[in-house]
Design a protein around this nucleic acid. Structure first.
Lengths: 354, 354
DNA sequence: TAAAATAGCGTGTACGTACCTTATTTTTAA
DNA sequence: TTAAAAATAAGGTACGTACACGCTATTTTA
């Protein structure tokens, strides 16, 4: 059904239907109602080709993400976004990624300022620096620029959609796997490793989930837990790791709720004979972690499909801006359990629809 | 860059460029070369909107799949396909699914005949009845109808793409998980359950993978294996299950390489006290299996994203027919490990790009 | 009471492509 | 040499939509 046919049905001209559809006014109440009724009845949807052709519009989406080096976590969402950008470029979706230093509020703010100056049609935001992200989200709201949150949520925000994971449940899952590996008894060390100073709700939730699982198990009495916090790059990191995994009495299991488990794995690997039965579980399929998974130092990795997160983030805008569809509000991606055996088809075989 | 601009650059009319692009002939060699050079240089790609608008073409894709009842495996790929059909309908992709009885060659052939009579623009084929599928694939090739294979491959075929899983690796993964659960020692029963009489390469490969993992482990001596084959619906199924999981001495682990593990789980559940420590692992997130996973009767399920398989199958045709893109030949989907803890985000939260 | 403003509606054009029709030039055959 | 045929090129139209603009009848203002 086309506008022309609707016009014929309503005994009006094409232009009148057009004005009704686009709410341009200058149509009498009764004519408007008649046309709306017909549109409703025949279930009219605009022809995407014709619309795309005439609008010939470019949608500029800016992503604001933490800067990263090769092999670090944020490389993966970016990969997914760029993949989506390739697929969606023919629909006029343009992506540019702006980066900020996770440890520098100044850097975030200057990037945010730049971003706003572009007057983009949409923004993808990783609220790694929570407080500043809140401020930016307010500005975006004022400027009527839709934004998608990726990785974690922020308070009182009204994003077009949120794309991330259930971090609490991720922690519970890690606990379940690790406890099975160590046969439901022994000493477990939770090692929280970060490369920035920000409060990280994701890490926190994972740790809480981890503890929750054990606290609510029937083998809680057989497990002893201790928790340490380490900052990447600090000179006493080796010592901190040493302390965390035990100097005199060794621990049986290690849980690192971030993508940084490879630092512990590297240490364990170096002094292999001291930790013959240590089981380790961490998050994220980054190359350094994968290497240790293949070697057997790490036993499980929990993935959250960061590439898909990136892909969805951009395609949310495609749906919203190009197709004019409603977008799902919250997208929680599955928590993938990865071992040596199923690594292969997670590793480099990400296929995208489209 | 548009055809018009290219025409201007080449100092010819729009129609001439059109003839060159569509190889309609009636253009002198030199003019053709000049135009091709320009097209190459400016990296011309046709505007998908304008093309779609003028062609206004409907692509009729027919899928030929095993019939199913609610809750059975094939429901899931179909769901994915129909989801894709909804998203792609605005691009002129139309899907109709034809069904056949897995136990009836006649049924397959009559459905295949019907399918061919439609002269579809593309076919999605589940080669569950292998021999007949081979014949159909030949006919499709002769008729120059592209087809996508889903679930399993067939010999000597040249599909547009294959979408499925690595069944051998799936079996290895199952073995790894089950062996960890039973603490690397004990008696394991492989129970192959089918609801048809066809040779099923997927099941076979999973079983081989399962055995391969144990055969190449260093605890092979601690494991005893036995294998049984059961046909769903046969009157002696309960007895067969009874025999498979042990009458006098119980087994420690059960592996069912199909989606039919719920039959065993139901049995185990009924006589729970007899199997206090039995660990079970199977395939596919169908409702019956999920229920037993939630209850704890089943410990792990291995998924292969059947909805995604269905989605990819149809979007392969979108890529091929609408966008004119090259399509990835083989798509192996990840082998997902599902437990009580990460079930939620696999269960009903499948999101699709687009 | 005439002029100006406005409501309501229709018309025309452009987007880039595919394809059909017509015009011009070149080649061939008589 | 000329008419017919073939080859080549040009022109035009339609696809469905968005939007600028124009027209008429009515209402408001001066």
């Amino acid at each position: 059904m086309t506008i022309k046919e609707i016009a014929k049905l309503a005994n009006v001209s094409l232009g009148t239907v057009d004005r009704v559809i686009h709410k341009r006014g200058k149509v009498s109440k009764e004519t408007e109602k008649k046309i709306l009724d017909i549109i409703d009845k025949v279930n009219y949807t605009p022809n995407i080709y014709a619309r795309g052709l005439v609008l010939n519009k470019q949608y500029r989406i800016k992503a604001l993400l933490p800067e990263f080096r090769q092999g670090q976590y944020w490389e993966m969402p970016v990969k997914g976004m760029q993949n989506a950008a390739t697929n969606l470029s023919q629909f006029g979706i343009q992506l540019e990624v702006l980066y900020f230093d996770q440890n520098s509020v100044t850097s975030f703010n200057s990037a945010a300022k730049q971003l706003l100056s572009y007057k983009p049609d949409g923004v993808i935001l990783a609220p790694v620096i929570n407080f500043e992200a809140v401020k930016l989200s307010k500005k975006l709201k004022d400027a009527q620029i839709p934004y998608v949150l990726i990785d974690s949520l922020i308070q009182n925000s009204e994003p077009l959609s949120f794309i991330g994971q259930d971090a609490f449940q991720s922690g519970r899952l890690a606990a379940k796997l690790l406890c099975t590996e160590i046969n439901l008894k022994g000493s477990i060390s939770i090692i929280s490793i970060k490369n920035n100073e920000n409060y990280n709700s994701t890490l926190q939730q994972r740790i809480e989930g981890f503890k929750d699982y054990i606290a609510n198990s029937d083998f809680i009495d057989q497990i002893s837990l201790n928790e340490s916090h380490i900052h990447v790059g600090s000179p006493d990191m080796p010592m901190a790791i040493e302390n965390a995994i035990g100097t005199k009495e060794n621990v049986d299991g290690v849980f690192v709720p971030s993508s940084m488990i490879h630092h512990v794995a590297a240490y364990v690997d170096r002094y292999r004979q001291r930790f013959p039965n240590l089981k380790m579980i961490g998050n994220d399929l980054i190359p350094n972690n994968i290497r240790h998974l293949e070697k057997g130092t790490i036993h499980y990795l929990i993935g959250q499909r960061p590439e898909n997160q990136g892909y969805y983030a951009l395609s949310s805008f495609y749906k919203h801006l190009v197709l004019g569809q409603r977008v799902a509000e919250d997208i929680y991606l599955p928590l993938d359990i990865i071992t040596q055996e199923n690594l292969k088809y997670y590793n480099n075989n990400f296929q995208y629809n489209f």
